[in-house]
Design a protein around this nucleic acid. Sequence first.
DNA 1: GTCTATAGGCTGATAGAC
DNA 2: GTCTATCAGCCTATAGAC
Lengths: 198, 198
Amino acid sequence: MPRTEIQNLELRDQRREQILIAALKVFSRRGMAATKISEIAKEAGLSHGLVYHYFKSKEEIFTLLVQRAAESAVQIIEKARLQEGTPLKKIKWMTEQILQGLSAGEQILLFLIMIQASTSDAVPEEVQHLFSSPEYKSPVNCLVPLIIEGQQCNEIIKEDPIKLAVSYYAFIQGFSISKLQWNQCPIPEADLIIKIFK
Amino acid sequence: MPRTEIQNLELRDQRREQILIAALKVFSRRGMAATKISEIAKEAGLSHGLVYHYFKSKEEIFTLLVQRAAESAVQIIEKARLQEGTPLKKIKWMTEQILQGLSAGEQILLFLIMIQASTSDAVPEEVQHLFSSPEYKSPVNCLVPLIIEGQQCNEIIKEDPIKLAVSYYAFIQGFSISKLQWNQCPIPEADLIIKIFK
DNA sequence: GTCTATAGGCTGATAGAC
DNA sequence: GTCTATCAGCCTATAGAC
C-alpha cells in the first residue's frame, strides 16, 4: 500500500527537521565554511545526495538556521516582557532562563550560530542583509525599552541605556563562548550579571 | 651592488611580518577555513607563491598567530600584577587597558583569533593541543590568584574565584564580539564591569 | 524517497622562469 | 626574492538507477 499524500508531507517535514538539527550541530562547531555537506549528512544519518533533495544548497540551510536563531533570541525578550513584576525582575527572570538554557540542550547552539553569522564575513549574502536591514530587531535594541522602564522607576542606574544593553548582551554572548571553550565551566547566578544595572 | 646578508635577513623578517599582519586581518574576519591563501597574499600586496616561500602552509600561519595572541592575552595580566595598588585597582587598570585596546588597533584582532581558535573544531591540531595542554596558562587561570588576593583583603566579594574569573573573561570576550558586530557600539567604563566583584 | 556515481570548479601547494 | 603556470585533491551540486 502506497503512502498517502499526508504521510509524504509528514515525512518530508520530518526529514527536513532531521537535517536542520544535524546541520546546527555541525555548523556551530565548525562554522559555515568548514562544514561539508557530507558531515551534515553523516550526522543526520543519511546520504549527501538526500540533503540536496531537501535543500537547494549549503547556504540555504545555514541561512534558515540563522533566521531561526535570530527569532528565538528576540522571543526570549518578548517573553520576559510578558512576565509579572518590575522591569528588573523581568530581566532577572530572562537571565535565569538563558543561563539555564546554556547549561544544556540546543539553545546554546542557536547562540553560537548567531555569533558566527554576525561576526564572520564568510557567510551568505542573505545573512549579511538580515543583520544590516532596518527591520532587523537586534537583541540589544529589544532590550533598551525594558532598561529605560527600569530607570524610570529608579530600579536601574541612570546610565546610557544602550551602553547597558550592549554590556548585558556582551556578557551573555561571552558566556556562550566560555561554555564552548570549557564545557565544565561554572555558570554564575543571574544576580551576578544583574549587578551591572545597579 | 647586491644586497648584503644582513639586508637579506632584514627583508626576510619584514616580509614575514607583512604577511602575518595581513593574515591576521583576514583570518579574524573570515576564520581559518574560509580564508584563502590568495586573500592573504592580496591583503599583503604580493603573490600567493611568495606566501609559500615564507611559510610552509596556511595552518602554520594560523598557528603562529594564535600563539602570539595567547601570549599577549597572558601578558596583559602579568603587567597588571606589576602595577601599583590593591588587587582590585590592578584589575581595574587592566580592564581600562583592554577596553581602550578594543576601541582600535589590532589588539581586537588578536582577541578575535583567540576566540575562533578556541571555539572552532576546524583548526589545526597544534592549535587544539595548545589549549588542551597542561602547560597552557589560560587567562581565566591567570586571573584567579589576583581575585583571591582581593578577597583576602576584603576588596572582592567572597564568591567562587573561578566563577568570578570566568564571568570577567566572558564579558571581555563578549565585548570583542559586540564591537565586531556593531563597530560604533558604546564602550562601557571599567567601573561597570568591576561591579561584578563587589 | 533514497542512494551511488560523477561532473565541474575551486584552492592549497609546487615547479620553474626571471 | 618574486612571480606565473600548473598539478592534484577535495567538495558542492547534479544525474540517474532503484
